[in-house]
Every structure is written in structure tokens, then in C-alpha cells.
């Protein structure tokens, strides 16, 4: 799992790429949480760009909600951008957008 990021106008953009399943989630968590620790006190909001995610199952739901809870603790809202049709379907079915709105 590769994770790209940028910090612009107090917005932290996180763009993971590849497949989020049980096998890849551990490394994705580690990478993203390192970024989170670095920027959580500086960021006004976090945008997860899912445009490069080629596959995601419920492990990805748990992953996104887990990150949401981390940022929420610091009062930093999180958003989702660019989901593929397949990713959008699974996020809609599991109600993720009620916690993490799509922009």
C-alpha cells in the first residue's frame, strides 16, 4: 500500500493507492497514523482521496472509521473524495458517508 499526502491551506490530503483488504490494512494504518500524528494539531480538515483505490472490502470501512475516530478526538473533520463506482457502493451500503461526508 502506497500512501501519498500533501498539506495545503491547513487541509491534510491523504491519498492511499491499491487494494484495502485485511492483508494490506495493517501497513496502511501505520502509514496514515504516522501522518495523522504529524499534522493533527495543524490541520483544519482531512480529505481522504480514494481515487487510486482499486479494491476495498469491509476491512476498508473499519479502516476509514478508525481514522475518523482519531481525527474526531482532536475536533478535525474528515471527508472522502473521488471514490470509484465500486468504492462508492460499499461506502453507501455501510453508511460511512453519514460520519465521513463525500465532497
Amino acid at each position: 500500500m502506497r500512501v501519498e499526502s500533501k498539506f495545503l491551506n491547513r487541509i491534510l490530503y491523504i491519498r492511499p493507492s491499491g487494494e484495502i483488504d485485511e492483508h494490506n490494512a495493517t501497513s496502511a494504518r501505520k502509514e496514515v497514523d504516522t501522518l495523522a500524528e504529524q499534522y493533527v494539531t495543524l490541520a483544519q480538515q482531512v480529505v481522504f482521496d480514494l481515487g487510486e483505490i482499486s479494491f476495498m472490502d469491509s476491512t476498508g470501512i473499519g479502516f476509514l472509521i478508525g481514522r475518523y475516530k482519531k481525527f474526531h478526538r482532536y475536533g478535525v473533520p474528515m471527508y472522502i473524495a473521488n471514490p470509484s463506482q465500486a468504492t462508492d457502493k460499499i461506502l453507501t451500503v455501510s453508511g460511512v458517508y453519514t460520519l465521513i461526508p463525500k465532497i
Binding site: R29, S58, G62, I65, G66, I90, S94
Partner: peptide, 9 residues
């Protein structure tokens, strides 16, 4: 960090 959505999906 399991969401309990597997069977629903």
C-alpha cells in the same frame, strides 16, 4: 476496527 458489515455486504 471491524465494522460488522461483512454479511450485510
Amino acid at each position: 476496527e471491524r465494522s460488522g458489515m461483512g454479511f450485510t455486504i
